[in-house]
């Protein structure tokens, strides 16, 4: 037995597979099989109790004419409007920290702090903070800014931007740290030369920082874009449950809602499949564009 293992380990493919085996086994059972099952369920009508009933493409036809689906997709796309702020905000902060400001280490540490908080904690916190009679509005009123007091999370006009700003806040530290690492690799002489030429802060940002860190900006943009489709669920869940009305109803929340409150796991899985295709499309497109730039 041992001899055979050794011989197997001698060939590269077999050895690699032995090294890969535990990981692949777990991934197969707990990641691939569920995706395959989700695909199967998307072609059924299933209330969770009795056996799923095969319905073919009926769920997908229903999705095409489902106003709630289109509302959710629209919301997902509206979030992308905040992409510039989301992508460039951390860059600007990183540039400021990188500029040699006294206390840089401390600020870096503090701005990263929220990144360790769980979405459940963040959601619960902002839910309390942003209530009509909550701390933020009380503060605004006490300093004479009562005109700015809002029903942040329950007014359809403010709720989506508020929620997106919370996402941005929660990921700000991560983005800043990533950009700082990229900035550390930019040749400092470039800046010195630009300064000698009399370039101001904004020009240096545009002409040196952005081009020199472009790969990182791309990475962060893709990361953020995929996140808006895949990781916002816990925030929606703890902050608004998609409300008021459908104002913050997003696709991954729809999957959950259609399954556990709508009572049809088949239809929910179909929405999930559409979401999966969408995310894969976004990733694939981004990947393709990056490859092309590289070539």
């Amino acid at each position: 037995m041992k001899g055979m293992l050794q011989r197997l380990a001698g060939s590269t493919v077999a050895a690699s597979l032995l090294f890969l085996m535990p990981a692949l086994l777990v991934l197969f059972l707990f990641r691939l099989v569920p995706i395959e099952q989700a695909f199967y369920l998307s072609l059924t009508s299933w209330n969770g109790g009795t056996d799923p009933v095969w319905v073919g493409l009926a769920n997908f036809e229903r999705i095409a004419g489902d106003p709630v689906f289109w509302r959710a997709l629209t919301n997902n796309l509206l979030i992308l409007l905040f992409l510039p702020l989301w992508v460039l905000g951390p860059l600007v902060i990183a540039v400021i920290i990188h500029s040699g400001v006294p206390g840089a280490k401390f600020f870096r540490l503090m701005i990263f702090l929220p990144a360790v908080l769980s979405p459940v904690v963040i959601g619960a916190y902002f839910n309390v903070l942003l209530k009509y009679k909550g701390p933020l509005n009380v503060f605004l009123r006490s300093v004479g800014l009562e005109g700015f007091a809002r029903q942040w999370l329950t007014d359809p006009a403010t709720v989506l931007p508020t929620m997106v700003l919370i996402f941005i806040w929660a990921t700000l530290g991560i983005g800043t740290i990533i950009y700082l690492a990229a900035l550390a690799q930019v040749n400092a002489e470039l800046y010195e030369a630009a300064e000698l030429d009399g370039a101001n802060w904004l020009q240096r940002l545009r002409d040196i920082t952005v081009p020199e860190t472009w790969r990182t900006i791309e990475f962060w943009a893709i990361f953020v874009m995929v996140s808006t489709f895949t990781t916002v669920f816990p925030y929606v869940y703890t902050l608004t449950r998609g409300g008021p009305g459908y104002s913050t109803y997003l696709l991954d929340y729809y999957v959950y809602d259609a399954a556990f409150f709508g009572g049809n796991f088949g239809y929910a899985s179909a929405v999930g499949m559409v979401l999966l295709v969408l995310v894969t499309g976004v990733c694939g497109l981004a990947f393709f564009l990056l490859r092309r730039r590289q070539a």
Binding site: Q37, F233, D252, Y253, G272, L276
Partner: peptide, 8 residues
């Protein structure tokens, strides 16, 4: 997305 595979 986690929501997709949650049930299966």
């Amino acid at each position: 997305p986690a929501a997709v595979v949650m049930i299966p």
